[in-house]
Design a protein around this nucleic acid. Structure first.
Lengths: 158, 158
DNA sequence: CAACATGGTCAGATTATCTGTCCAATATGG
DNA sequence: CCATATTGGACAGATAATCTGACCATGTTG
């Protein structure tokens, strides 16, 4: 009997990571097959946070919780690849608004479709009812998580 | 009204990522405060897959789903920092077994504790019953995910 | 024993992040 | 209405975490 750690049950982290990773792999794999092979998972932060009428770089960075330099790096790659375009902000001479191009919108649509596909496939195995319950619980958890994170932050940084 | 994408509901990905990210941040933040400030999230793959009586690098890499070079990079950092030690494998002259040092075991223990703490805090907010149901559903999902991933693989690569 | 397979290292590249510094444009408070 | 502070973004450089390709030494096997 190989000695093993008393990790009685899987951590919550593993339980969340496993399906997340699988979904990520499936979605970005399928996306590449559809011809969007220059979009990597890290780019999803951009798609996730961009408004349909364009968004400033700084705002994207804030929403994604990263530095503007890091966001600039991602936006740059996606612009180079033709998914984004930026134009000067009419209300602020310093700023540029980043927006999706036609192709960017196609990618975004594909991304949402593929994600939904994968979820449907899971639901097919798990059962629609259970998937709905899981979704509901995760939604609730999302609400709770912020509160918990804030409470923890109060403990040291505020 | 800002035009916005018809992302009617959050993707399953977001629902999984949100709490996962929060947990990760909380756990590795707290770990640093406890003095394990040279352990980063990427190192968790090592702790996750190492056996208490030691494990070969190649096996670690396989389990983690990464190249042996990448795993070597992580193992190296953790060895440098005193969490791991490696010794020649008595059964195979080519191989070395990587094992946790005392300090490595302490880190591992802290990691598990902090993870459990965070989960408990979430459960406090969400309710123990709901957390248990969520856990059960995620366990079930984990089982289903592998099957689904395999089925998808059948579609193109086999 | 010759050929093949395997464990690990070395070298080098790429991706995704960070800090620090700076400039130009805007906002604000006398 | 100007002096100062703030903000949006770019430039430079560092680091972390991955990858591929080539290689060597040891094991395994026909």
């Amino acid at each position: 009997m190989a000695k093993t750690f008393p990790d009685r049950q899987r951590t919550l982290g593993s339980l969340l990571r496993l399906p997340y990773q699988a979904l990520q792999d499936a979605v970005y794999g399928a996306l590449a097959e559809r011809g969007f092979d220059d979009i990597r998972a890290a780019h999803s932060t951009v798609f996730r946070h961009i408004d349909a009428d364009g968004t400033r770089l700084t705002v994207l960075a804030e929403r994604a919780g990263m530095t503007k330099q890091s966001m600039a790096y991602l936006v740059d790659a996606l612009s180079q690849a033709g998914y984004l375009a930026s134009a000067p902000d009419p209300h602020d001479g310093r700023a540029r608004r980043v927006r999706l191009t036609r192709r960017g919108e196609q990618a975004m649509t594909a991304l949402l479709e593929l994600s939904a596909d994968f979820e449907r496939r899971l639901a097919g195995q798990l059962g629609a009812t259970k998937m709905a319950r899981l979704r509901a619980l995760l939604e609730e958890l999302a609400g709770v998580v912020d509160a918990t994170a804030d409470a923890a932050a109060d403990g040291f940084s505020r």
